[in-house]
Computed example of a mutant assay.
Amino acid sequence: MKLIALVFLILGLHSIPALAAEFNSGCGSIQLAYYELGALYYHHADGSYAGIDKDVVEEVSKRSGCKFETVLESRVRIWAQLKNNTLDMSVSGIPTPEREKFAEFIPYFSTRNYVLLHRDMPAHGLSMAGFLADANLKVGIIKSFKHGPQFDEWVDKLWGQKRVHEASDFDSLLRLFLAKRVDAIMVLPTVWEPLLKKEDINKQIQLLDWAPQDSIVHGLIISRERISKTRRDLMKKAIYSMADDGTLEQIFSRHVGNKLAREMRYEGPRY
């Protein structure tokens, strides 16, 4: 009996480092939802996925010890689930006072929207004010998306005139635009950069910078209710270290090139 007890004691002592390592990681498994949008998250012809958000999440996992169980969802469903405390986490979200009540945001890039117009847009529609003044022109947006202070104010005015069409995702929005059911859509560089490489689309559109002063911060979105502050802090530390050692910019460069990658660097406050 003493021999058996000694064997169990030795086995137990050998298991302590493994248990300690698991305890020290302090993170465990987290449910994370992606959404498809340009270079942020996209699929190849063989069905496999790639993108900035995928690379960021995988690196956060390595540095934090968090294990992510990922699903693909629409942006509308993601926000609804986060608000209802039925989802742990998502990616590249824009903080608002309402959203910050139920989620913490960890910034990892900053950018702004541009406007995409048809090549044959009349000259008076080539400015924000001119577009607004023409009651026949309509804009398309993705439901639940924020576009930056200047664009959001402009869209609110168009809503008041019933000149806004909503789509559930970017592919649906682009179809509305190419079919000329709407005259303008807003797009991030992470969307228009791969889009402009498609010659059949490029020759139909023009890209204008209507809000050069806007800066839209995007971050990991983490449920305050479902994920403890300790676990959120582990991911925050991972993101900050990725920014400091250049890993984030390297990830951006892989998908949108060096110039846009530099412009996407987040240099705002850390919380």
Rank of each mutant, 00 (worst) to 15 (best):
L158Q: 03
L132H: 12
P149I: 10
F109C: 01
H118S: 15
K138H: 10
D169C: 03
S127W: 07
M89P: 04
K83H: 08
V115Y: 03
H165P: 00
R75P: 04
N84S: 10
A103P: 11
S168M: 09
K143V: 06
K67V: 12
F68W: 12
K157A: 09
G160S: 05
L87G: 01
W159S: 07
V91I: 14
T70Y: 13
G148E: 03
K162G: 06
R77K: 13
T70A: 13
P97F: 11
E104T: 14
Q161D: 07
V76I: 03
D156W: 07
E100C: 06
H124D: 13
A135C: 03
F105C: 02
A123V: 12
V164A: 11
P95S: 15
D156G: 12
E104P: 06
R77N: 14
R99H: 04
A133S: 14
R75N: 12
Q161L: 12
H147G: 06
I142W: 04
E98S: 06
E100Y: 06
L132C: 00
A103T: 15
M121H: 05
L117T: 00
D152L: 09
F170P: 04
E166Y: 12
L173S: 09
E98I: 06
D171W: 06
D152C: 12
D169S: 08
D152M: 08
A167G: 07
E100F: 08
D156T: 05
Q161F: 04
T111V: 00
M89W: 13
H147R: 14
L82H: 11
L87H: 07
L126V: 01
F109N: 02
I142V: 06
L126N: 15
L173N: 08
R75L: 10
T70M: 10
Y108Q: 01
Y114A: 10
S90N: 12
